[in-house]
Nucleic acid binder design. Structure first.
Length: 287
DNA sequence: ATAGAGACCTGTGTGC
DNA sequence: TGCACACAGGTCTCTA
């Protein structure tokens, strides 16, 4: 479900509420998420304090006391919900998929809900979590200075796949997903069907297209984070509020709508399927 | 080595 | 109303 901006928003929201708290118990209702939870999951967490929450790509990294790290990924449908005492969030509308309940000293609790169970969690040592295969192959974050045209160009020259697929590959840039790839390519005026290697000039220099693409990726991710991510369907943030970026979609889920680049462009947004997933783009101004 | 298809799950919306 | 099918924000694994 969530891409980088949603996970970043969730990370900030949860961090604000939970940092410093001690886990008093963990109730495991279903241990069979995408992967089974590790042995003694609840026991190993009980008594630890949440020191700090961070994010890498679409992963949440929970830095706990005694040098333990909880890594969680929300998959397509995972969400966290904070309950404070007996507030309204205490009566979820979907209790059947509340798989984990974390209780904190002081009365607060955190519920993990995930209908499709594509999400997963694991416990790793603080010293070596970043060496895990989930993290070792990841590309740079689009939020920092590491992502540049000079980084991306040589990588693209070796790829024969459509640029859409290459951008979804987490080894290229970490954290992009189906929504923001479509949005970034529209902003960069690049067709999602274009073979990645053809974005790069024949002299191997990044050229205008790669530069435009890098700028578009960085900007769309920054805009989405600033809007608190996107809420589709009944998806909410940890406090029950909604992200707002879905109101700023240019092409995603807008097949048949006029290209927002009007009046210069008279195209119509189109939906195509690439490697089994929907892509939205304007065939007129994206080349 | 790389690219594409299939698999993993459940819910929702559409059309007959 | 019931049923079948397509589709959903991700990633891993298997096959060419």
């Amino acid at each position: 479900m969530p891409e980088l901006p949603e996970v970043e928003t969730i990370c900030r929201g949860l961090g604000q509420e939970l940092e410093g708290l001690e886990i008093s118990s963990v109730e495991v209702r279903r241990p069979d998420l995408r992967f089974p939870l590790p042995e003694s999951f609840a026991e190993r967490l009980t008594g630890r304090r949440i020191r700090h929450l961070s994010r890498r790509a679409k992963y949440l990294i929970w830095h706990l006391s005694s040098d333990l790290v909880l890594v969680s990924h929300l998959g397509m449908s995972g969400s966290f919900r904070i309950r404070v005492g007996a507030d309204i969030q205490a009566s979820p509308k979907d209790p059947a998929h509340d798989h984990l309940v974390f209780q904190f000293r002081g009365g607060r609790s955190l519920v993990y809900n995930d209908p499709r169970r594509f999400g997963f969690m694991d416990l790793l040592p603080a010293a070596s979590w970043a060496d895990h295969v989930w993290f070792s192959g990841l590309g740079p974050e689009p939020t920092g200075n590491e992502l540049s045209a000079e980084y991306l160009a040589p990588l693209l020259t070796r790829r024969r796949s459509p640029i859409k697929a290459v951008l979804l590959d987490q080894r290229t840039i970490a954290g992009l997903g189906n929504i923001y790839v479509s949005e970034a390519l529209w902003r960069a005026r690049i067709s999602p069907r274009r073979t990645a290697a053809t974005l790069v000039g024949s002299d191997g220099h990044p050229g205008v297209r790669v530069t435009r693409l890098v700028d578009a990726v960085r900007k769309v991710i920054a805009d989405a984070i600033a809007a608190g991510g996107s809420s589709i369907g009944d998806y909410t943030l940890a406090d029950g509020s909604l992200g707002r970026f879905q109101h700023q979609f240019s092409v995603y889920d807008r097949a048949g709508a006029p290209c927002p680049r009007s009046p210069q462009c008279h195209g119509t947004v189109r939906r195509i399927v690439q490697s089994g997933r929907s892509t939205y783009y304007c065939p007129v101004c994206q080349r």
